[in-house]
Design a protein around this nucleic acid. Structure first.
Lengths: 131, 131
DNA sequence: GCTTGACCTGGTGTGCGCTCCAGGCGACAG
DNA sequence: CTGTCGCCTGGAGCGCACACCAGGTCAAGC
């Protein structure tokens, strides 16, 4: 039969069987087609969609956001009304996160510059854990 | 007496009283000095350090990482051996996160471009929630 | 002295995102 | 036919990062 069995799908996506089932229960993917015996078969389309979901999940979007994302993209007509605003909001959140990360990287760089040389060169270093 | 009381410190840092106490229990901050009566007083130095911790926390570093960060920075000598490697590792993790976020932003941009126009212009759009 | 409100400690509860488990079924090898 | 392995479902458990609560203490105002 065509498509991948759950084990192969897990290997292909990098998710666990439990996570694949969990995402399906939560409406992030599927429902995945079944064999006559009731076993899941993941086709190319499923795998591609799981790739998108995984990518967004890794970026920190929550299960709720992803469910909404999936739901809206599947509505008739696809993108009924609030899709683009929703996407723009998520995008803005991600940009915010990127910004916070960049600030944190600068903080670490500052510490690295302060401690990472043999002499303590002047830096923009402003605080220390001690005095 | 000098310093801020817990309510003022919470207001100044944007954290809750519970979170301030939690961070202290977990060794991320303090121990905060106390008044004779046993109430905490946060001085400027405490607040500055809380600012750093909050910044890194917002970037997604875990409590364990931050405890280690705090612990190592306080060791004698400060930065005993493994500080800079530790900082570089965290930094690399943050860069990875930034990258993942940027990939996710591109995915969203792709969907926005696909659904955000009246005509469906050609895009690099590759998948859809339906077929 | 008394009230009132902010703060104390220790412990329990919560939401998220999985993860694990038990008991049972499908499918293929021999 | 039988064994074995992978997959099924429903439900319980877990780690993280707090949030909440009870019962008591401190301190400023009247």
């Amino acid at each position: 039969m065509t498509g991948l069995d759950p084990g192969a799908a897990a290997a292909a996506t990098g998710l666990t069987l439990d996570t694949l089932r969990y995402y399906e229960r939560e409406g992030l993917i599927g429902p995945i087609k079944r064999t006559d015996g009731g076993r899941r078969r993941y086709d190319d389309h499923d795998l591609a969609w799981i790739g998108i979901i995984t990518c967004l999940r890794e970026a920190g979007l929550g299960i709720g956001d992803l469910r909404q994302f999936t739901t809206i993209l599947r509505a008739q007509p696809p993108g009924a009304g609030n899709l683009v605003p929703f996407l723009r909001e998520r995008r803005a959140e991600l940009e915010q996160r990127i910004h916070r990360l960049q600030v944190a990287v600068r903080v670490l760089d500052d510490k690295i510059a302060y401690y990472g040389v043999d002499e303590n060169l002047p830096t923009t270093h402003a605080w220390d854990a001690n005095d």
